[in-house]
């Protein structure tokens, strides 16, 4: 009797286990299918397209061209120049956001009157649609009617062609991106700062540590992982930044702000070279992956040194 019961119980639980597993699969399946359908499939599909001469606009059958697009793109000085513009933008914008974000985080770390209000104010740019930000700044930078040229003219008596001078336009974009995203870096840094145990800071003050010693030995190690994450996200985002630039300058004046993302858009949706644009997109993807890995390695190095 006992054995029978045991067997039945075991059988029952085995069935239950199998059923549980099935149920789990069924529950997870929609999510997996959506993920595959929305991300993996387009990714692979566009990888395939990048080897074809194909335009989705034009009903001509796709022609396999192998690595021809990649070959052409890599040898195209025009593409390299756009890439350089992108990298300059990324380096300047992310660099400035890093400095300002960390600086702001230190300000916000202290308590002062109106801190909450100031915080809310600072976070508001992040909440805005990039297109709206682009449109705002396009008006504010407007050489004839904009507030910014007016202020620089009346306050400092300098005429700056914010978005009409090709040597300045990229910096104007950098300023906008910085205005929008420094608070993002600030948030991450602040989270790191707030996680620093109070007693470590008190210890360092009793140790008579200088500001720099304190920063190097306590603050930096604590905020570094978050900071690297913030930089990683910002680098990826600003590398593929499109809407703000498109609305503000349309890649101009001339080619001053024509980044790779803008060129990709043109190739894909103005010239409708779907195959070639897929190749450009893949090259951008590879660049982002390389940059990401650089950052990760940078953060790993610290870990390794300690281990």
């Amino acid at each position: 009797m006992n054995d029978d019961w045991g067997e039945m119980m075991e059988k029952g639980s085995r069935w239950k286990r199998i059923f549980d597993r099935r149920l789990a699969t069924i529950m997870v399946a929609p999510c997996i299918i959506i993920l595959l359908g929305m991300f993996l499939f387009p990714l692979l599909w566009s990888l395939g397209l990048s080897f074809y001469d194909y335009s989705v606009l034009r009903p001509v059958p796709p022609r396999f061209v192998g690595f021809q697009h990649y070959n052409e793109i890599i040898r195209d000085p025009y593409i390299w120049a756009r890439f350089a513009t992108s990298m300059r933008f990324v380096a300047l914008a992310v660099g400035l956001q890093l400095v300002l974000g960390v600086g702001l985080a230190f300000l916000m770390y202290d308590n002062f009157k109106g801190k909450k209000f100031f915080m809310a104010l600072m976070l508001s740019p992040m909440m805005m649609a990039p297109v709206a930000v682009g449109a705002f700044f396009r008006f504010m930078y407007d050489p004839s009617f904009g507030i910014i040229p007016y202020l620089t003219r009346t306050l400092f008596n300098v005429d700056i062609g914010w978005i009409i001078d090709p040597s300045v336009a990229l910096y104007s974009l950098v300023l906008v991106d910085t205005w929008m995203w420094s608070p993002f870096v600030m948030l991450f840094t602040l989270a790191g700062l707030l996680s620093i145990p109070q007693h470590l800071l008190e210890m360092s003050s009793i140790d008579r540590a200088s500001w720099w010693q304190r920063f190097r030995n306590i603050i930096l190690p604590q905020i570094k992982p978050l900071l690297i994450l913030a930089l990683l996200l910002r680098t990826m985002e600003s590398f593929r930044l499109f809407d703000t630039i498109w609305v503000m300058t349309g890649g101009g004046p001339g080619l001053a702000t024509e980044t790779l993302a803008i060129t990709l858009y043109r190739v894909a949706f103005q010239h409708w070279h779907t195959g070639r644009s897929s190749a450009v997109a893949y090259i951008m993807l590879i660049v982002v992956i390389v940059l990401t890995n650089l950052y990760l390695r940078l953060s790993m190095r610290q870990e390794g040194a300690r281990g």
């Binding site: 145990p197 007693h199 470590l200 008190e202 210890m203 003050s205 009793i206 030995n217």
Partner: peptide, 19 residues
Amino acid sequence: SAAERNIAMVFQFIALYPY
């Protein structure tokens, strides 16, 4: 300030520079 007083302090939680 704490730094200007000639004192040393041992904390409840182990207070060492972690890195």
